[in-house]
Design a protein around this nucleic acid. Structure first.
Lengths: 206, 206, 206, 206
DNA sequence: GATGAATGAGGTTTCATTCAT
DNA sequence: CATGAATGAAACCTCATTCAT
């Protein structure tokens, strides 16, 4: 039990540091933030961060992995449970937007600050991103196979279009300083994408 | 004539510095690059850069403005000359992709390094980006008015989807290290987008 | 205790840095000195100075304040204990000269290098200097009130004459590279000043 | 004659540069001024300054020498014509104060900026200053010999007191931002100094 | 003589990272 | 585990001085 408690306490501190990093990076940018500032925000000493993370870059990488893998693992079964095709595509878009709508600071870090050309960061992020692209590809691909989307749809490109559209929607939302609710973009965007992928017009009382 | 010659020579050196900056930033990233490296690449002394640019950030900003405004000014008349609707949309996508396909280093800088949270950089880039979004909005909006796209299309969102899709296409192309020709994505992507915007299915002799 | 010890240690290092700054500034001048040189002289890393002082200018300002305020606080009670009039004036002059005679490097910094037109330096020095002028004014003013000096003496000007005379005496001593003992100027200078202020000729058994 | 005209023109430009230097140094301090700023103020190109002055320091030195030697040469005969003793001392003080009262920018440069620890500057200034101290010493010495001042007056110290008193008067005037006319200090200060040097009380109807 | 673009050495300051306590 | 003082490399930027025109 003590060991568990210890491990838990350690996990807690690590989590506190990561949460602090999100807030600080969102506020000042990755390069504009110092380890000292993150430490202060987390309420720990500067050196303490290095007990949990080897380098500054690992804050960004771990941050991303923790949140994004949780998102992936949460999303996979939910998607599997949804009907193949437009509905599943819609759920994926909903999960994507909801993920960012729920935490603006995290959204800011993910959309802007994590896109570092730094090789360590890029490398640390790549696997999860690849998994996400695979997931998107699955959702679209199964839709194609089920006849929900155009049979000649280039799944590789379609998933890029899908991700790009949602990504830019989130970025635009951040840019606009919250003048609209991010989730309000869900249906129109999915409408465009689904139609673009060749789904029969929905909402159409044919 | 001497003054003209002088001005020309100055422009030349400025251009040489900017070209060097593109190469260096593409190679090492903005934060990974030093003024000394850029200067060496340009074949001038470090201090010389400061005769043409006040700060390091101005390299990025000027770089962007020069290339992107030229792109905008070149595109506007070309678009105006193209038939409203899908064809004009296709031309816009073509210009967009061609712009990046033609200079990989520049593409790299535009897609990755220029997205700096640094306020000076962000502020310097905003006007041109806003103008581009307006241009995209025009292309889509005129299409809607002409009945080429769905009458209830949300132009604001549509242009975000359009930009996001193309942007991600370019990014994916950069990520893939040239395993495919960027221009080969043009037709499939435009196909998806046009259909998504409610254009009647093209190429289909149904 | 540990906190006290820590604070003490910190004070020690700060003091070591300041002492090094005095030596280096005296030797090479303020503008001729680099933070690296001061750090080396203090036996610390360059960056360490910035843990104790925000800017290079603060070295000069803090240096001055530490020494001069100590001088002021030490002098005030001593002066209050001396008989009003010439004797008190003499003590003030003695304290002034002794202050510089005791540490030639410090004298050099105070007489030459601290007179920086730099606003930060000037501003940091002003309050202590104003307090000193007030103190001089008190010594002369009480003398006037007590009838020890001419009743129509302009105290404002008199204190300027007093300070100027001593200041130049110290500067002259520094210029002369120690060919005479600074303290040997005490009695002649005080003699001139006291007589000039209207004190009855002393030592003269007329 | 053309050669003379050329030399004259050259002298003019040199004078313009020096005048510009006075203004710029007074405004921004010696170290806060750049050769480019001085050149701009003088209406010449940066490089032109180097046709007339070898180094930045020479601006300060030449500046000083020009004005101060003129002051010395003008003062010597005037002093010789004045009655030995208090009157001559008073004239010297008057010339000194008038010299500064007439050009505030020059006063600022002389009182503050010229006191550079820089060896080139210090060396360039020394001879003129030594000559001035000799002159002061002459005025006081002849007074002593003539019985106008105390026979046991230490001329070396007295001239230091004299110079220090006037110097601080000018500095105080500069510090006070002109709240009083510098010349108004002449009589009180000379009164103190003359009495201090052992002159029989003046204005006293003994 | 005059210009002003170019040079490049050099300084202040920052900050990721370490390590003695 | 935690601390935070210390490190020192590195970078941006300035500016006195030069020199081709």
């Amino acid at each position: 039990m003590p060991r568990t408690a210890g491990a838990t306490k350690a996990r807690d501190k690590e989590a506190r540091i990561l949460a602090a990093a999100v807030r600080v990076f969102a506020r000042q940018g990755y390069h504009g933030s110092t380890m000292a500032t993150v430490a202060a925000e987390a309420g720990v000493a500067t050196g303490t961060i290095y007990l949990y993370f080897e380098r500054k870059q690992d804050l960004l990488v771990t941050l991303f992995q923790r949140h994004f893998n949780e998102y992936l693992e949460r999303s996979r079964p939910a998607l599997a449970a949804a009907p193949v095709g437009v509905e599943r595509l819609r759920l994926l878009a909903e999960l994507h937007l909801a993920f960012f709508a729920e935490d603006r600071a995290l959204a800011s870090v993910f959309q802007i600050h994590i896109r570092e050309p730094d090789p360590v960061v890029a490398e640390g992020i790549r696997p999860s991103m690849a998994a996400y692209f695979d997931l998107i590809g699955d959702v679209i691909g199964t839709g194609v196979e089920a006849g929900a989307f155009a049979p000649d749809l280039d799944v590789r490109l379609a998933r890029q279009v899908f991700f790009g559209a949602l990504d830019e929607t989130v970025t635009g939302w951040l840019r606009s300083k919250r003048t609209f609710a991010l989730m309000s973009a869900l249906d129109p965007v999915v409408g465009i994408l689904a139609r673009g992928f060749g789904a029969p017009s929905t909402g159409d009382p044919s």
